[in-house]
């Protein structure tokens, strides 16, 4: 009884320390994987090219429905339609339907695409990496790599990081197109807003800067997502069931990290933006 009580106390009191331990281990992992970049790019060119193709196209059942780029396009397309119809119905209440293009120009690059594409990236590319690396870890393939003298961190993790950084740009561009197409089709073709009016307000309030900023957000998100997901895959344990749990844990963590990252980046970039002039 006594020892059970003591164990309980230990468990509760040790929780913050274990959390700190885990954070330290994660930081070490992230630092090392980033530091290996030159080596990975130089030594593992073949693997690098293969991974770039894999990130864009996915493997297995997801490749059948188009791969991560097409999936992201579809998700942001649907999100754009949602945004288009919700904002249209709100503007209609205020009798300001004509400003549909304005909502599209502001909301898409600043909010909708970074958030939704970030989540889609975590779901498709990120959790695929966790599943792969987790399976390799559980099947002791990673240990085998180390035994034959290949450093597993640059070979498996850093190459994936670089592949993600490269492929996020076209994937994100497709996501952006998807959201705009969805928004415009909804407001112009479904609700009968005049196309000229829509385009006029879109052009007036569209800022090139916003689009560049959102690409900056996308790069930040790609780094965070891939590092978190590879960490959980690389350190998976507990057999096949453990791999499933690792994927779930990685998705939960990375969704939170994506949003936090975007908040930080957009506060840094937009706080003093006075490029945006409505009142002259």
């Amino acid at each position: 009884m006594e020892s059970r009580f003591l164990n309980g106390v230990k468990k509760v009191a040790g929780a913050p320390l274990r959390l700190l331990d885990d954070l330290g281990r994660q930081a070490e992992f992230y630092g090392k994987s980033i530091a290996w970049t030159p080596k990975a790019v130089k030594s593992y060119k073949g693997e690098q090219v293969r991974l770039i193709a894999e990130v864009g196209m996915s493997t297995g059942a997801l490749a059948v429905i188009g791969g991560s780029s097409i999936i992201t396009l579809f998700i942001t397309l649907f999100a754009g339609v949602t945004g288009g119809l919700q904002s249209f119905s709100a503007l209609k209440d205020l009798q300001l339907e004509a400003l549909g293009g304005f909502t599209s120009a502001i909301i898409n690059p600043r909010l909708l695409v970074p958030i939704v594409a970030g989540a889609a990236l975590a779901a498709t590319v990120g959790s695929g990496f966790t599943a792969q690396l987790g399976a390799m870890r559980v099947a002791e393939e990673i240990d085998a790599l180390e035994v034959i003298g290949v450093r597993s961190l640059p070979y498996l993790v850093t190459t994936r990081l670089v592949a993600g950084m490269i492929t996020i740009i076209p994937i994100f561009a497709m996501a952006m197109v998807g959201a705009w197409v969805g928004w415009k089709v909804t407001q112009v073709n479904f609700f009968g807003l005049s196309e000229g009016t829509y385009n006029h307000y879109l052009d007036t309030f569209m800022q090139w800067q916003d689009i560049l900023f959102s690409f900056a957000q996308a790069l930040g998100v790609a780094v965070v997502v891939i590092l978190i997901h590879t960490y959980y895959g690389y350190t998976a344990k507990g057999g096949p069931a453990g791999v499933g749990q690792a994927v779930g844990k990685a998705v939960r963590t990375s969704l939170i990290a994506v949003l936090a990252m975007e908040l930080v980046i957009s506060m840094a970039l937009y706080t003093n933006s006075d490029v945006f002039r409505i009142s002259g």
Partner: peptide
């Protein structure tokens, strides 16, 4: 095997996103 479970969870996230966004459009409109 481990790859099977990992892929299943991965596909679950993707399919859920793919299903819920269109569902949201319909249920909103």
């Amino acid at each position: 095997g481990p790859r099977g479970v990992g892929n299943a969870v991965n596909e679950t996230v993707v399919y859920t996103f793919l299903a819920l966004f269109p569902l949201n459009i319909m249920l909103t409109q």
